[in-house]
């Protein structure tokens, strides 16, 4: 059973990135549960977790959102590589927050980045995931927490 604090740590890691890097806070949409493999957007930053909990946590965002985010960060390179860098940094922040809060219980991987139409997101069959929509400006990304 996931603890509230654990979920909050992941969520804060994500919203904190928007608040600090883009100086515009992101808000949470209505969270829900999902059985089966969640759908992802074009760019996804993944961290895998083992130890007391096993599974993945990832941030997946549409290209349009990342473009606006880069613009807010005064970046003018909107290449594929930069987009990957960006979701990687978000995942990095989530990973850093998790290490700070549960470093002693979790082994947290270095983030990896997935992109493309049908990326192969690791998913354990039968695992229920928490989907937390991250709304920023008019865009919406998703934080997926899939841990057992």
């Amino acid at each position: 059973m996931l603890y509230e604090q654990e979920l909050k740590t992941f969520v804060e890691g994500t919203t904190n990135f928007f608040e600090v890097a883009a100086q515009q806070p992101a808000t949470l949409g209505s969270p829900y549960l999902l059985e089966g493999t969640p759908a992802v957007h074009e760019y996804t930053g993944v961290i895998t977790i083992s130890g007391k909990r096993e599974g993945v946590v990832y941030f997946t965002a549409p290209k349009a959102m990342l473009t606006v985010l880069l613009m807010k960060m005064q970046e003018n390179d909107f290449s594929h590589e930069t987009m990957r860098d960006l979701v990687g940094e978000v995942a990095n922040t989530i990973s850093g927050n998790a290490r700070r809060d549960f470093g002693r219980d979790f082994v947290i991987s270095v983030p990896s980045v997935l992109s493309g139409e049908k990326p192969d997101v690791p998913h354990k069959p039968g695992q229920r995931s928490f989907i937390i929509p991250i709304n920023w400006r008019s865009h919406s990304a998703k934080l997926v927490v899939s841990l057992s």
Binding site: E4, V11, P31, F130, I132
Partner: peptide, 9 residues
């Protein structure tokens, strides 16, 4: 959405 986090848990 923050208010709904504990509920989804």
């Amino acid at each position: 959405g923050n208010d709904f986090l504990p509920m989804v848990l």
